[in-house]
Design a protein around this nucleic acid. Sequence first.
DNA 1: TTGAGTTTGTCGGCTAAAAGACTATTTCCG
DNA 2: CGGAAATAGTCTTTTAGCCGACAAACTCAA
Lengths: 222, 222
Amino acid sequence: MYSSQYWYLQNHSLFKHLNSNDLNEICLIAAYKTVRKGDIIFFSEENNGRVFTLKKGSLKIVRIDVEGNEIVKDILKVGDLFGSLDLLESNEDEYAIVLSDTATFCSFKAADFEKFIENKPEVAVKYTKWIGFWFKRLENRYSNIMFKDVKTRLLNFLKDIAKDHQTDPDGYVSLPNYLTHQDIASLICSTRQTVTSLLNSLKSEGIITYSRKEIKVKISVL
Amino acid sequence: MYSSQYWYLQNHSLFKHLNSNDLNEICLIAAYKTVRKGDIIFFSEENNGRVFTLKKGSLKIVRIDVEGNEIVKDILKVGDLFGSLDLLESNEDEYAIVLSDTATFCSFKAADFEKFIENKPEVAVKYTKWIGFWFKRLENRYSNIMFKDVKTRLLNFLKDIAKDHQTDPDGYVSLPNYLTHQDIASLICSTRQTVTSLLNSLKSEGIITYSRKEIKVKISVL
DNA sequence: TTGAGTTTGTCGGCTAAAAGACTATTTCCG
DNA sequence: CGGAAATAGTCTTTTAGCCGACAAACTCAA
């Protein structure tokens, strides 16, 4: 018999191979929380230096730049880590907004995790690799932005979210759409107007169909 | 009494706090090498999955994109880590070119380092933080490229290399210049011609002077 | 159901900077 | 030294896509 908290942790690839004693230990430093759509998770104040793992739902990471613009940095889904991944403080100008109806996540203080890691070297190595993956992901995202035109970037963005979804028998992938054109623009580093007109030209090319709730993408094009 | 190899490792912040037994251990998995200007370090083949630390000199990291263009990804200096930082394989399309007259570096197999880490969790935590720093650095570099115009990016680039150099009494920082305009263009994501004319306009504004060997930057402007 | 707020659609002007073409200068090496 | 290769300088042309302005469509709460 195990508590649901155990299940959550065990289900996360970072902790999958830990036994129940280990889980017991990390549960002591982990805190769970469920929040609703539109809720904001700030990384400053009491959350500063915390690492979060998303258990359910999806959210977007937003940064406020020096001019006060909102920049959508990333869209996260179940299993992703966020927060102070580098085990360092700060991130004052960043926060997360819940996109799905509800989201559940657990979190622990980077400092506590650090202590935990020191006794669980397998976890340390796994964590290191995890960070390495994200590093590569960031590199790819950015080189995409710098060397591809907006249309390609938009298609790559669609491809990226489509890859974790089932293909319908008609050859389309149906993606629930939590994002405004403004959000998408921010993610692919473009403008609202450009995204709108590109989406419409993709629509008239028969590559996608979309409403405000859903985007369907012809999988063969990606 | 210690060998010069010990000194090298000990001098690197990642290994600074290890005692001589630990150093002995990691020396067994580390290999040293000195190379000359223009030499190329490939990350594929026998170097695949290796982590390097630069002991002396400077080098540039180059990537070949799908269209065959050389993209200068980074300029590294003493103390920097490069190679398979994520402890993973691949990086086939990347290599390093030595810029200084000579360069010395040591390297170890990611797999060996991993084993080492499992017995030295403090090193794992340090390594994770190290990667975290680079993560942030990458984020900053790219947000710079995406949200600033070319002139600002060029000035930021100069600021960045100026920050580890002494200021002359005349208020200028003298930077040895290993880079062509093409290299600089690639680093700040612009074109050769644009860099050339921007450098010349900065020169006529009295902000910099430069030859092919050296760039002098008025520190007050940065 | 109504009207305020938010998100989408469309257009044309505008500009930074890429791209191309050619020349001038410097470097390198036999 | 001399001549080829690499690098830098300066034009002009072209263009992707940003930006403002405004209208249409949708959403939601009172």
